[in-house]
């Protein structure tokens, strides 16, 4: 099946077998290796990507379902300013998750930033619960996530005000 979709801001056309999963397509056909495969069952969060700006487990979606949609992988997100800011707060707090859970956590934080959720420990915990990894401290993750979300929301609010003022 031939499909067209947007991958990391580029239009792609690809012929995919009906049973091929998105994570395999990304890793094998596009050589995008930063998103990993671990459980292959949609449980661990290692293969998380942004599909139409929502976090999904790419091992649980068939490749043909990407038709007409927008995909951002770790490689694409790394080029954003938001990633630079997130990474800066990670480093400042000496929080260094492994390559398997790193992107699931970053994408979950990204999704939270752009949601209307109230920032508190419970809602952050809910947002991050889909990442199953034992590489780093969950307490530190929560603290780091809270710092990032607060900082990003402040930036976003500032931008909104700027836009309103311009109008």
């Amino acid at each position: 099946m031939i499909i067209r979709f947007t991958l990391n801001n580029e239009e792609k056309t690809v012929d995919v077998p009906a049973t091929k999963r998105v994570i395999d397509l990304l890793r094998e056909d596009f050589d995008l290796l930063r998103n990993k495969v671990s459980c292959y069952q949609g449980a661990c969060g290692s293969c998380s990507i942004l599909l139409d700006n929502c976090i999904v487990s790419s091992c649980s979606i068939l490749a043909f379902e990407l038709k007409g949609r927008t995909v951002v992988t770790a490689e694409g997100f790394m080029k954003t300013e938001e990633y630079q800011r997130i990474n800066h707060i990670f480093q400042k707090n000496q929080y260094d998750p492994c390559d398997f859970c790193r992107w699931g956590k970053i994408f979950a934080i990204h999704e939270f930033i752009h949601s209307e959720e109230h920032i508190d420990s419970d809602s952050l915990t809910r947002a991050l619960k889909g990442n199953q990894c034992n590489c780093s401290s969950p307490t530190l993750l929560l603290s780091v996530a809270e710092q990032i979300v607060k900082a990003e929301k402040k930036i976003n609010t500032g931008r909104k005000h700027e836009r309103t003022a311009r109008k």
Binding site: C44, K129, L141
Partner: peptide, 16 residues
């Protein structure tokens, strides 16, 4: 039965 694929998410961990 592959139960080991399960690892608790952050919501199921106690205060440490």
């Amino acid at each position: 039965n592959e139960s080991l694929f399960y690892y608790p998410g952050i919501d199921r961990l106690p205060e440490i």
